[in-house]
Design a protein around this nucleic acid. Structure first.
Length: 287
DNA sequence: AGGGGGACCTGTGCGC
DNA sequence: TGCGCACAGGTCCCCC
């Protein structure tokens, strides 16, 4: 499901249900997702409050009053849903948009105040880890991540430096979370189209002006997608059930055969496969 | 060392 | 209707 904007949308949806509240109980309906659940996970969560929810790249970081962090990655199909007790609901609340198949509700969190939060993940590519808050630098999943695209450490020169010397296609390089954090297949395709850069171009061959244009395109597409609540493909919804709508603004992703939206271009969107994944682009205006 | 391909899972949609 | 295949928002591991 999720790239950076979708994870950010999930984070915003979880905050009102979780932040400042105590976890009363946690039920694991199976021993693992992609990896086994952390040792003693239920005991390490129950009874503690969630002080804050952070995001780094595509990871959610739930900061607990116990001094530990619960790290959650949603993989391809992970989602959270929130159910509030009837007494807490306001008329018009959108509590449970599209019920997922309950057989994939792998983790159920009972939260203070009558809130139930379910983690549902049919493909089980997601995972959860726990570690001491503050030890992020020693966490293999977090150490080595590139800059957040909407931070001020991300820039044309920084991106140019990260791509320098790489012979791999720029499409593949941008999927490498060490180059820039949080991009996935959709937003890489969209950013390259906005920047007018071919996904086939060697990463080392994106100097100066092109790197500047690409960095700007990445930053803009990510910020616009966050503002739109992410993209809703299949049944992705924010944790509050709201549907993102950025998918209506895709220029290329999933649009094979459509006319290129670049004004005056006249090209057609083409699909190719790179490193086993679909790439959508316009061969006319992306060079 | 860097890069490509396959593996990990289940679901869905399409063509025959 | 039913079957089989291709494909899906992500990473991780292995091998060249």
């Amino acid at each position: 499901m999720p790239e950076l904007p979708e994870v950010e949308t999930v984070r915003s949806g979880l905050i009102p249900a979780l932040q400042g509240r105590r976890v009363e109980q946690v039920v694991l309906n199976r021993p693992n997702l992609r990896f086994p659940f952390p040792e003693g996970m239920v005991e390490r969560l129950a009874g503690h409050r969630v002080e804050r929810i952070d995001r780094r790249a595509k990871y959610l970081l739930l900061r607990l009053t116990s001094g530990e962090t619960l790290l959650v990655h949603l993989g391809m199909s992970g989602r959270f849903s929130i159910e509030a007790a009837a007494a807490m609901r306001q008329p018009g609340d959108f509590v449970y948009a599209a019920p997922a198949n309950p057989k994939h509700d792998h983790v159920v969190f009972e939260i203070e105040g009558g809130v139930t939060i379910r983690y549902n993940d049919p493909r089980r590519f997601g995972f959860m880890l726990m570690f001491e808050t503050g030890s992020e630098a020693g966490q293999p999943n977090l150490a080595g991540l590139g800059p957040e695209p909407n931070s001020n450490t991300f820039s044309g020169p920084a991106l140019g430096a990260a791509l320098a010397g790489k012979r791999t296609p720029v499409k593949s390089a941008l999927l490498d979370q060490r180059v820039v954090a949080g991009l996935g297949n959709i937003y890489v395709c969209e950013a390259l189209h906005r920047a007018g850069i071919s996904p086939l171009r060697e990463a080392r061959n994106i100097p100066g002006v092109r790197a500047e244009r690409l960095a700007t395109a990445i930053r803009n597409v990510i910020e616009e997608a966050i503002a739109a609540g992410g993209s809703t493909l299949k049944d992705f919804a924010g944790a509050d059930g709201a549907l993102g709508y950025f998918q209506h603004r895709f220029n290329v992703y999933g649009r094979e055969g459509a006319a290129c939206p670049t004004s005056g271009c006249g090209g057609a969107i083409t699909r190719i496969v790179q490193a086993g994944r679909s790439t959508f682009f316009c061969p006319s205006c992306q060079r």
